[in-house]
Write a protein that binds this DNA or RNA. Structure first.
Lengths: 152, 152
DNA sequence: CGCAACTGAGTTGCGCACAACTGAATTGCT
DNA sequence: AGCAATTCAGTTGTGCGCAACTCAGTTGCG
């Protein structure tokens, strides 16, 4: 009797993934409270700290989020004074998102976060890298399968 | 220069976890469409198929969900005719959740799902088990760290 | 017994995620 | 040039996930 095909909850990798993801998010909630950011907002800030002045579309592609999620999120970041949003002159459909001074400054309060999270995970650099690789492979495999099942 | 401490998005395991979790959920969305269930609803049904007639509190402990999430979810399952909810006689605070006939019958439509998901993940039984183990370890480690940081 | 502390489920409010849609701007094709 | 198809951001509606709260019911302690 193999595990595959079982409907038992604890057999399922997906539940492990779901639990792990929620556990990590809830740790981020604690850590990010001081920066007044949610985890998805933090992801957007990370993307902007890495490269400023991006189109909403580009952020969406990098984070795999659509405008339905990003638009209100970016409005909240703008309301918090962390980013500016400006329509692009040469293509009025696009909106360019850039860091305000406060948004740039916030980076200093964030530099210690990856170490805290890494520490909490209790993995060495090699373990982190391996898991990261396996998760990426999993994501790609699952996404390919889903797209085959139900084409975008 | 180590990876730890980097604010680069692609270095972060958490983003991999977040992406993988969303990818899996979105595959479930396609697969579960035929059963008219969301992924969290499916988790509750799994728990009930495994053992029927449970208190809301017990379901919450198993799935790590609080009443704020479970109460409306269970009301929706009840509205869909899949479960019954009854106040326990000897402790009027507790609510017992049990499968209706339709809820029991739905299991037959679900038996093939784990294989589909397993196939989509492209891992053999050993790979699944190992990843499952590592994710469980990660979850526990992260939860312990969070509770130390911000005691419940 | 009496009453304070606690427990269990539910509600409210907020922020994702995502589908479905809108509307304006641009592109492409004839 | 003209117009259909596409693109981009934003809006609407639904369902989590979680904090904070309410409220009834139960427990525990003097």
């Amino acid at each position: 009797m193999t595990d595959t095909g079982s409907l038992r909850l604890d057999d399922q990798l997906c539940f492990g993934l779901y639990s792990a993801s929620r556990a990590v998010t809830s740790l981020y909630r604690v850590v990010l409270a001081e920066l007044d950011l949610t985890y998805p907002q933090y992801l957007v800030m990370l993307a902007l700290w890495e490269r400023d002045d991006r189109l909403v579309k580009e952020l969406g592609a990098e984070l795999n989020l659509d405008s339905g999620t990003l638009s209100p999120l970016l409005k909240r970041l703008e309301a918090a004074g962390l980013v500016d949003r400006t329509r692009q002159a040469d293509d009025e459909r696009s909106v360019r998102v850039s860091l305000s001074d406060a948004g740039k400054a916030l980076r200093e309060k964030a530099v210690g976060i990856p170490d805290v999270i890494g520490e909490a995970m209790g993995l060495d650099a090699a373990g982190l890298a391996r898991m990261r690789r396996e998760l990426d492979r999993l994501t790609e495999s699952v996404n390919a399968y889903r797209e085959a099942l139900s084409p975008a």
